[in-house]
């Protein structure tokens, strides 16, 4: 029992990913929605790292490095948008922000 099978780790990643996805669907607060996206990104990162270990190839970890960078940029811009949106619409509720409908 000193081993963890790769599929267990990978399934764990997919569980976290879909927990994040479910959160994305059910939450109305756009800040929480953004957090869920971070959760999903983390799940993907873990998949990369797992495969890097599994295949003895550091390319996966390099990819994680880039994903973290992109996530940081995305969060910065996303939160900036949320703030700007809140200024004009006085709301962070996704049910009230449905401009695409018209």
């Amino acid at each position: 029992m000193s081993q963890v099978e790769p599929w267990v780790v990978l399934s764990f990643c997919s569980i976290i990913f879909f927990i994040g996805f479910t959160g994305l669907l059910i939450r109305r607060n756009i800040l929480v929605v953004l957090m869920c996206i971070e959760l999903m990104l983390n799940a993907v990162n873990l998949t990369f790292v797992t495969y890097a270990k599994l295949l003895q190839n550091l390319g996966g970890q390099v990819a994680v490095f880039f994903i973290i960078t992109v996530a940081a940029a995305e969060t910065a811009v996303g939160l900036g948008l949320v703030v700007a949106m809140f200024r004009t619409l006085r709301s962070v509720d996704t049910d009230q922000i449905q401009l695409l409908r018209e």
Partner: peptide, 20 residues
């Protein structure tokens, strides 16, 4: 993945979450 672990703490926990 030691570097990634460090980056996780620094960037996600230290920067992104604080921003949130």
């Amino acid at each position: 993945a030691h570097l990634v672990a460090a980056l996780q703490v620094l960037i996600y926990a230290g920067a992104i979450l604080v921003l949130f």
